[in-house]
Design a protein around this nucleic acid. Structure first.
Lengths: 191, 191
DNA sequence: CTCGTAGATCTAGCGCCGCTAGAATTCATG
DNA sequence: CATGAATTCTAGCGGCGCTAGATCTACGAG
């Protein structure tokens, strides 16, 4: 069945091609420019082909988001492992999170801002998402008895800094100072 | 010119009626249900009338948002003034912020999540917005030398908690514990 | 009081959206 | 080579934000 195999392989490639096209188009022109018509044109197929791969536009965005979690987890792990002491490691993880959000805003938006039905804290949470959150929990473990709760608050603060500065609601300057302040206060008086 | 006066008055009433209809419909069915056609039906005029009051749908959302800032500022002021000591006052302001976000999610979304060109930290920032942010700065003033920077970080954390719990990305439980943790850490080691 | 006109309002429609039914085409298999 | 299934396309539905031009209303001049 090598013929059928080839077909399946080509189909999988096209699946990934659609996701990549959606991600790149969103990053270039924003999610409002990502329409099924433009996507179909980019992958050089007609619109209905998209629906043989995904249940609809939302499912495409969801697939982009899940790919992003793997990237984010990798970046956070790399930042954390570059430091031995827990303080600098935490600072590096927070910095890496905000760098990711700033450098790939559309991807970040798909992951954390657009409506989603991806489960976050449940047993069927996608593994890449668990890994990303796990990095943050790990970086906070040395600083408190409830690292999960602390991680949720830290994540919330980082997310807030990311989206409020991105949308112009807080000025773009002093972002590094905000990270320093946040990290210092989070670990103040802890272990 | 009492006749013209009456016309102007009726026109202003209709202006407010459109804003209220948009806010209520968004709160009832979400912003994706707020279309110019449904809005026109609700105010019992045809679609083009909306465009004699606002430049477009975005301008209607913006008007809803600005109304929300006045409400939020009022709630925060009330929470802060109920306590004399700065610690409990800050805790109350943070709690009031998250209560506002939880009870009026669509309004909150218009204010802080939808794309906007409202200026936040500039000279032509709408006064209600300045007032809301000023309440947070005021509550934090006793705790640091840079209350603005601290207020930005605090606001970011509150915003993160509001939207991540709203979208199901952090579990709805323990929200009070998160606020306590946040407030305690924010003022840890400060004056 | 009549009537022309200016302003307010509506009808109808444009180009776009997400999505899908059914036709046309392709291609592995009997 | 013929056939039936799988694949892909053409064409179109209803709804979106928005607008041009027709229609209606009502005020002020004669």
């Amino acid at each position: 069945m090598t013929v059928t195999d080839r077909r399946l392989r080509e189909r999988a490639q096209r699946h990934d091609l659609i996701i990549a096209a959606a991600r790149d188009l969103a990053e270039a022109e924003g999610w409002e420019a990502v329409t099924t018509r433009r996507l179909a044109e980019l992958v050089e197929y007609s619109q209905p082909v998209l629906y043989s791969h995904f249940d609809g536009k939302d499912a495409i965005v969801r697939a982009v988001a899940i790919g992003g979690f793997a990237d984010l987890a990798r970046q956070l792990r790399q930042a954390r492992s570059a430091f031995d002491e827990p303080g600098p490691a935490l600072r590096a993880v927070c910095g890496a999170y905000l760098t990711f959000a700033a450098e790939r805003p559309a991807l970040y938006q798909a992951m954390f801002m657009l409506p989603t039905d991806v489960k976050f804290a449940s047993e069927d949470t996608p593994p890449p998402l668990k890994a990303a959150f796990g990095e943050l929990v790990g970086a906070l473990k040395p600083f408190g008895a409830q690292p999960e709760l602390l991680a949720e608050v830290t994540w919330a603060a980082l997310h807030g800094l990311a989206v409020l500065s991105r949308s112009g609601r807080i000025p773009p300057e002093h972002q590094e100072a905000r990270i320093d302040l946040l990290v210092n206060q989070l670990i103040a008086g802890m272990s």
